[in-house]
Simulated scan of single mutants.
Amino acid sequence: MAGYLIRRLGTAIIVVLGIALVTFLMLHIISPSPATDVLGQKASPAAIKAWNHANGFDRPWYDQFWTYISNLLHGDFGWSYKNNQTVNSMFAEKTPLSAFLSVSSVVVAILVALPLGIYQAIKRNTAGDVTATTLAFIFYSMPTFMVALLLIQVFALNLGWVDPNVSQNQSLTGALGSWQDLILPIISLSITQVASFSRYQRSAALDVLAQDYIKVARAKGLPERLVHTRHLVRNSALPMITLIGLSLPIVIGGNVLIEYAFNINGLGLMFINALQNDDYNVLMAYTLLTAILTVVGNLIADVLLSVSDPRIKLV
């Protein structure tokens, strides 16, 4: 296990550095310096030159990249010139709300998808299974922002059950004070995940139902309820561990369209604003954190699978 973790961590570091290099080069090619965005389009060449020199943007790109990586090793993601504050402080302000939305949506998706997938496997090819499968394909193929817009139109504008204007509280505590505003965003994030998770869960449950130990349990006269609870649920739930691990990047990347649609002051809306304002340090930090969470999520899923299933060996 220790050797496997060391190798995976080494690979993860190489992957993250590679992503950092590619992202840095892409942003450097698009615009070598944000001086014009900071000083304005009418800034004089002399002012731009002075600003670039003061902030190190007149140095070679590889020198700038090395400085950026050195700062990262000290936990410094740089300075947001547009917002006039550190990127670290911006993430500290907006991460709790985005994380709450993402974690809540994943929890809701698991609570719905796990029993739904098992039900579909047990009732295979029945009307209920066909209906659930059809809905899963529809919602899985729909863009997340389209789901959000439909929910806003139906439940906020047509029925008036919730307020379409989401609270602009930036803190998680403030947002929870208007918890009704978070219902539609969480449901919007959950629907597509339920569609995906339930399909995996159904497939896994069908594989388990075909195993010999299920047939032996039934041959011994064990009631179907016990067959399902003791053997089917536990063994078919293992693939969900992988899906949960792969869902970890949603904490950073999955909220972009939803937060934009509902105008929620989280990481997703911050990323959209950074794109519009060419706030490159924010874009770099967002990309790197998404990459780190992706690598960490895969690693956690592999470790949890090996712990849950002794048949899986990490080599």
Rank of each mutant, 00 (worst) to 15 (best):
L275R: 10
L176C: 02
A35P: 01
S141L: 05
K82P: 00
R230Q: 07
Q276W: 12
A47V: 07
I312W: 04
S141Q: 08
L39S: 01
M240G: 01
D279N: 12
L5R: 13
T95H: 10
V295P: 01
A47N: 13
R124S: 02
K123D: 01
G268M: 03
Q153N: 15
V162T: 13
A195R: 02
A285R: 05
W61I: 14
Y68T: 08
Q180Y: 14
I258F: 05
A43D: 09
G75S: 06
I13G: 02
L289D: 00
I252C: 13
A205N: 07
L149A: 07
A2I: 14
Q193F: 07
I272W: 04
Q170C: 03
L243A: 02
V38P: 03
D63T: 14
G78K: 14
G3V: 12
T287D: 04
Y81D: 06
Q201G: 08
G297L: 10
R7G: 07
A301S: 01
L101P: 02
V103T: 06
L151V: 11
N265F: 09
T242L: 03
N169C: 01
A195G: 08
V22Y: 14
Y280R: 11
L206P: 02
Q201A: 11
G254Q: 06
N298R: 09
A113P: 03
T287W: 04
S247C: 07
I152D: 01
F137L: 13
Q180D: 15
N277S: 03
A12V: 07
Y200H: 13
K49C: 08
R225T: 15
S198Q: 15
I152E: 02
W51M: 07
V216P: 06
L39A: 01
Q168L: 09
I118Y: 10
L232I: 08
F91A: 13
I122G: 00
K215P: 01
N263T: 13
R59V: 05
L135P: 05
L293Y: 04
A35C: 06
D309R: 11
R218T: 11
W179E: 06
T67P: 09
D181V: 01
A136R: 00
G128S: 08
I241F: 03
H231D: 05
V107W: 10
A127D: 06
P45L: 07
G18T: 07
N277K: 00
L206W: 09
L314S: 09
L182M: 14
T294V: 14
P249M: 09
L267G: 00
D129P: 04
F197E: 03
F77H: 01
S203P: 08
G174R: 09
I258S: 03
V251F: 02
I6Q: 09
Q168D: 06
Y213I: 10
R202K: 15
L159P: 04
S44A: 06
S247M: 10
L289H: 04
S70E: 14
L304I: 06
L150S: 13
T86S: 13
N281F: 05
